[in-house]
Design a protein around this nucleic acid. Structure first.
Lengths: 237, 237
DNA sequence: CCAGATTTGTTCGTATGTATC
DNA sequence: CGATACATACGAACAAATCTG
């Protein structure tokens, strides 16, 4: 019997989360019932229940009385737009459509090492994107990912505009994010892409996304947004 | 026996929350142990436990293994700055010190009725404030409160700069907040108070604070912030 | 529409572990 | 060291929602 001082319900949660991350349990799949899981794993139903409740608050699964427990789809509209807090004048979330995308690999710079908690010499992938809304570019952003979490990313630039889809492909479970919001004059290159007059201020979004559990940063994104009448909506709990 | 279809643990939570809101349980006071509560109320220890866990996630109480359960102090530094997301260039929260304060009562306008979910004819209190940071004004804000929640507010303008303290005095438990963040040129009067050059953009914070449970808005605040090098920090869960 | 099976939600009770005083 | 309090774990029973035949 393997010795471990960690609470049983945490071990159960981690085991199930690992099966979801690795693709053993696909999005939409039904998880065995509490009773079945308890018998399989060899713990009580209450322990399984607590593990499942934690996984539900982490948005890893969805539970419905009378139906069952199901694996959440991280690429669903609800979860994929979870970190998109930019809203248009009408109050609707603005995600935009991808216009262009570039990808490059290189050694992490000073700010990148700070934001992503990397060591000197670590590599990152840099993804540059321009997002369109109602026919006009409204956001220019650079997304930086630790190279070791996304090996061989150059090959697949098609899904590279959705961090949720990307993370799911690589078996990375997304946790929370912290985003700095401020106004500033953008670099000239960015201003040109956005079509703003020189000196015009835009909203800068400096966001770090961490893995579930909060241990490791997954993505650092620096976005310049120009959306007249729009706003950033923060929810404070 | 009183009929109710609501789950027991919700009834227990509400009963305890009411005792805290009404001042029957003061900040810092120790709550009876799970076992004692269970006996007093006449439910099982597990039901009490679930109620207490919910109250802890609502930040109403703090639990410590081996010590006990204690009523949180809503005016403590941690809880009073919970909704203050403005950070200075050094990364520290900037709350500032109150410079001036005005209070007036009147009928709610259109925007105020929208934000505070009031009906035509309802009254509000309007509090105008200027906040100082390092000797200079950095924020001009107007805080609007439903008059029926804060009867006789004119009399006590001393604590009027801390919504947490105010709510506690009136037995209002604070829940969550939603804040719109955007950049705009401030009104001339505001620009004069902030000392910004004409045309300079500032960050506008449009925040609605709701009661615990999410039913009713407690405060609408519109703040104009000018803090070079600072930023708004949003946490996305 | 109903009856029965399944699954999660709620409630109860007990025992043991662990941190604090 | 003992007493106290919360944390973990187990097991059981019933309620409520859902699906199927």
């Amino acid at each position: 019997m393997t010795f471990s001082n960690r609470p049983l319900y945490l071990q159960v949660r981690d085991a199930l989360a690992e099966r979801i991350a690795s693709g053993g349990l696909l999005p939409g799949a039904a998880i065995p019932s509490e009773g079945d899981l308890a018998r399989e794993i060899g713990v009580s139903a209450g322990t399984v229940r607590k593990a499942l409740q934690m996984m539900e608050t982490d948005r890893l699964i969805v539970r419905q009385q009378g139906r069952g427990t199901f694996v959440s789809d991280p690429c669903s509209a609800e979860l994929a737009t979870r970190f998109t807090m930019v809203h248009g004048p009408d109050g609707e979330r603005v995600r935009g459509q991808l216009k262009s995308s570039e990808i490059a690999r290189g050694a992490a710079g000073e700010v990148e090492r700070d934001r992503l908690q990397l060591a000197a010499g670590d590599d990152v992938y840099r993804l540059k994107r321009v997002r369109m809304h109602r026919g006009a570019p409204f956001a220019v952003e650079e997304s930086v990912l630790p190279a070791d979490l996304f090996p061989g990313l150059e090959a697949r630039r098609e899904t590279a505009d959705q961090i949720a889809a990307l993370a799911h492909e690589y078996g990375v479970l997304l946790g929370n994010a912290r985003e700095r919001v401020y106004a500033a004059a953008p670099p000239v290159a960015v201003a040109n892409m956005l079509g703003t007059a020189p000196g015009t201020h835009v909203v800068v979004l400096d966001r770090v996304l961490v893995m579930m559990g909060g241990r490791r940063p997954v993505e650092w994104r620096l976005a310049h947004v120009h959306l007249p009448g729009g706003y950033y909506l923060a929810e404070i709990r």
